[in-house]
C-alpha cells in the first residue's frame, strides 16, 4: 500500500524529480548541482541545511535544495514585525546562503517549482538558537503556498524530533484543512510509512526508530543529539488540472533512551534514598517524649 502511494506520489512529480533525467534540468543548473552533491535517499523534494565555518560567530548556513529545480528559496521569519523577515534567497553555486536576521529564531524556508500542471514545493524550518525561541505559530499560520504541511508544533528550543516519538502535522490546501489526506514519510535510514489526516486535517506522525547500531556517529555532544538522520513528509493533491506536491523535511535524533540506562538510573536513585533513610528513624529520646505526651 505504501509502495503504491509512493508510486502515485512520484507519478505526480515532473521529470526533475528523477536524477536520471538531466535534460529536464537544462534551465535549472543549480538544482542539478544540488542533486549531485547529496546522498540520494529520497526522490521527494527536500531542503537540506549545511553549516559553513568553524565557530558560532562566523558560521553561516547554506540551504541546498534537492530533487527540486528552483531559482530561489523563500524565507519567512517568526518575527512578523520585521519587515525584512520575508525574503528571497538566491540559489548560487553551493546553494542559498541563509542570512541570520537581527531577530527571529525560527525560519520557514520553501522552494517552489512549477512545470506545466505540476506545482512542487519543498519546505523546512531552520532554527537560529541565538535568536531565541519566539512563538512561531503566527509564522506557520500564514498561507504561503497552495498545499502545505505545517508542524503543530515544531520542536521548540532544547527539543527536536526524535525516533519513537509522535508529532503532529497539519495539511492544508489554500488555507483550509485537508481531512483524510495521506501523508508519506521517508527517512534517510530507509524507512517508509503512511499516515492519514483526521477531520481537522491533522496527522500524527510516528518517527521510526530506525537507527542501526553500526551507524553510530560522533559522540560527546552535551545536548544528547548524538546521531541524526533526515525525514521527509510528502502530500499530493489535485485541483482541477493542477497537480500539487508538497514536502516538509527535517532531521531527527536517536531514541531518547539511546546511551541511557533506566535500570542504573533507578539503582542510583535507590542508593540515594538508602543514604537518606537514617533521617527517617526516630531517635529513642524523641520517641519516648512522644509516648509520654500521648499518654
Amino acid at each position: 500500500m505504501k509502495t503504491l502511494y509512493l508510486a502515485t506520489l512520484l507519478l505526480t512529480l515532473p521529470a526533475t524529480a528523477s536524477a536520471a533525467e538531466p535534460a529536464t534540468m537544462a534551465g535549472h543548473d543549480h538544482g542539478t548541482m544540488m542533486r549531485s552533491q547529496a546522498r540520494v535517499w529520497t526522490e521527494l523534494p527536500v531542503l537540506k541545511a549545511r553549516m559553513k565555518g568553524q565557530d558560532m560567530s562566523s558560521r553561516s548556513v547554506i540551504m541546498q535544495p534537492q530533487n527540486i529545480a528552483a531559482d530561489a528559496i523563500e524565507a519567512w521569519s517568526n518575527d512578523l514585525a520585521d519587515a525584512k523577515g520575508h525574503r528571497n534567497l538566491p540559489i548560487g553555486m553551493g546553494g542559498a546562503e541563509l542570512d541570520k536576521p537581527a531577530t527571529g529564531g525560527f525560519q520557514l524556508l520553501t522552494a517552489r517549482e512549477v512545470q506545466g500542471d505540476a506545482v512542487r514545493v519543498a519546505s523546512t524550518v531552520h532554527y537560529f538558537g541565538e535568536r531565541g525561541g519566539k512563538n512561531p505559530t503566527a509564522m506557520f499560520d500564514q498561507v504561503k503556498h497552495e498545499l502545505e504541511i505545517v508542524p503543530q508544533p515544531y520542536p521548540r528550543e532544547h527539543s527536536r524530533y526524535r525516533a519513537s516519538e509522535d508529532w503532529q502535522f497539519a495539511v492544508r490546501f489554500k488555507g483550509q484543512p485537508l481531512p483524510a489526506q495521506k501523508i508519506l514519510l521517508e527517512t534517510s535510514n530507509g524507512s517508509q510509512a503512511e499516515f492519514l489526516t483526521d477531520a481537522m486535517g491533522v496527522a500524527t506522525v510516528h518517527v521510526p526508530d530506525d537507527f542501526k547500531p553500526e551507524e553510530e556517529q560522533s559522540k560527546g555532544d552535551s545536548h544528547g543529539m548524538r546521531r541524526s538522520a533526515d525525514f521527509v513528509l510528502a502530500v499530493s493533491h489535485a485541483d482541477g488540472s493542477l497537480q500539487y506536491l508538497t514536502a516538509f523535511n527535517s532531521s531527527y535524533g536517536a531514541n531518547a533512551f539511546e546511551n541511557r540506562s533506566i535500570g542504573m538510573g533507578l539503582g542510583f536513585v535507590l542508593l540515594g534514598m538508602l543514604g537518606a533513610a537514617p533521617l527517617l528513624r526516630k531517635r529513642k529520646a524523641v520517641a519516648r517524649k512522644e509516648e509520654r505526651t500521648n499518654a
Binding site: K219, G220, G224, R226, F257, N259, R260, S261, I262, M264, G265, L266, F268, V269, L270, L271, G272, M273, L274, G275, A276, A277, L279, L280
Partner: peptide, 27 residues
Amino acid sequence: LAVRTGTSINFFFGALGNALFGFIIIA
C-alpha cells in the same frame, strides 16, 4: 531518570544526580 552511559563523565554526573535526587526525596 535514565542515567547517560555514553561517556564516563556523563555517567558520573548522571549517577551523582540520580543519587542526589533519591537522597532529597527521602530527606
